[in-house]
Amino acid sequence: MDTIVALSAGLLVAGGVYLLHAPNLMRLIFGLMLLGNAANLVLLAGGRFFGAVPPLIAEGETLVAGDPANALPQALALTAIVISFGILAFAIILVLRSYQFLGTADADAMRLAEPDTAWESPGESPGESPGESPGESR
């Protein structure tokens, strides 16, 4: 079972890293989502898989019966899921608005803060640079 989780995490990370390279910001968001899932899996796996019994204590007892799952990584993963959701939701809104504002969803074409400078070889990606973005006129 460990192996399945490890393979799944690796696959998610690979997909996430590949998508992070994409110029399209939506794909970048997809990549972040995959990475977030992978991180949660790694977190949970790091606490080991002792058993499938949920860490719940029966009424009248003070200890879990049997071989319970590790509760600590679950708590950490819960926190991580919620936080990654908050951050990603913000990122999605940001991507949407920057697309509407700059007229492109291509991260490499967004050059308001770092304008293309002389040392970069021109025409490296000819189709990507918007002639002039409305943001620059502001």
Partner: peptide, 26 residues
């Protein structure tokens, strides 16, 4: 805005390397 082939290949190599290493590390 698709990347040139070279860039996509670098991305693929990076992705496979990091992903594989995460599995091994885990």
């Amino acid at each position: 805005g698709r990347k040139p082939r070279v860039v996509r290949r670098i991305a693929a190599v990076n992705a496979l390397a990091v992903g594989g290493l995460v599995t091994l590390t885990l």
